[in-house]
Computed example of a mutant assay.
Amino acid sequence: MRRFAAEAVLAYKAANIFGADGAMLDLKSLVYFIAVAEDLHFSRAADRLHVAQSALSVRIRQLEDRLGARLFARSKRSAVRLTQAGELFLAEARRVVQAAEQAESVGRRAGQGEVGHVAIGFVASAVFSGLLPGLLRRFRGMHPDVEVEISEMETPRQFAMIEDGLIDIGIVRARSDPPAGVKLHVLRREKMHVLLPADHPLAAADRIALNELSRETLISPHFDALTGFGNMLARLSGRDGFAPAAIRPVRDFLTVVGLVGGGYGVALVPDAVRRLAGDDVVMRPLDGADDLEAPLSLAYADRQPGPAVAAFLECARAD
């Protein structure tokens, strides 16, 4: 009964890797013990570890004293062998050393941006333009073990969540003056086009001037006069006689295409919308407005990013 109780106590200590005084054992002691347990020879183990045999012997004795148990049976007449307590301890020591090696590897890889987590917000046009899928594919090829979480959301919400630290990166239809604390990097510039119902009188034209849209209802994906297309429309007001009859703000380009196709108005859209256009709409170049662009931009906090986020930013900027 006493023998069983002693082994149970040692097994508990081994599982927790604590010494008799409750302090955690150092990894070097465990590595030394494992080497001797594998070689069952102090001299060979010392050679493998590149330490003096005397130092190895002292370390093992200190380990046994802290555990309060003999780990090796050794004598001049017989080979070194593990005691029953040593066998119990060996399995746990290996587990702890392997876990420490894994933790070190993960920590090192995390520091290099090879593992971690990146939360990304995006506007829908970043997907159907092909920009976001291409960027994700390239980043995954370079950092396959980084977890990437993506969430579709409008530009103002992305800015707010970046400022609050709720997402790391946004892909937005940028404005020229982002909120304080948010930086922008243009990833792609797209020329503007006019989106018309297929049966619209202007659909027969090769190009359309701004002033030809003055009597039209303009359908536009924007939320305020400062953000994305709202900002662009504010800058266009009065240019070349441009004064649409009404502006109908909607949430996204899918809604724009649906309403234009249904005959409820026309729209100024970037080239990417071409991928959404069906037979009920047509796109025509905007004449005299070659300077008008709708950039897709990277948005991120103006502070030092974590390694995984920094790796994503570097990948995106390199395109």
Rank of each mutant, 00 (worst) to 15 (best):
R317A: 06
I247W: 04
R61P: 00
L286E: 04
A310G: 07
E147N: 08
T227E: 10
V182W: 08
C315F: 00
D39K: 15
R44M: 06
V127A: 14
L187S: 04
A100M: 10
R66I: 05
L88R: 15
A126F: 00
R59V: 00
F312P: 01
L184W: 11
D291L: 10
S176V: 05
A316H: 03
Y12P: 00
D65F: 09
M232Y: 13
S57P: 07
T217Y: 06
S214V: 06
A301L: 10
P270I: 03
L268V: 00
R70G: 05
S220F: 04
A160H: 12
Q304R: 14
A234I: 02
L132N: 08
G228F: 07
P244Y: 03
G258A: 15
L292A: 00
H185P: 02
I60G: 04
G134K: 10
L210Q: 00
L202W: 05
L286F: 08
A310P: 01
G130Y: 06
A204T: 11
F159T: 00
G230R: 06
R189G: 10
A23L: 10
D279S: 15
A79F: 11
N231C: 13
L56Q: 01
E216G: 07
V256Y: 08
D39V: 09
I171Q: 05
P285V: 02
A23T: 07
P144Y: 12
A5I: 12
A203F: 08
E314V: 08
F4H: 10
E314H: 11
D280Y: 12
A234P: 00
S151T: 13
V80K: 07
A52M: 13
A308W: 00
P144K: 07
N211H: 11
D302I: 11
R157M: 13
V36H: 09
G230E: 01
M142K: 14
S78D: 15
V36S: 02
H50Q: 14
S297D: 02
D291H: 12
S220K: 05
G263K: 09
R248Y: 11
A272Y: 05
V96P: 01
R44V: 01
R94F: 01
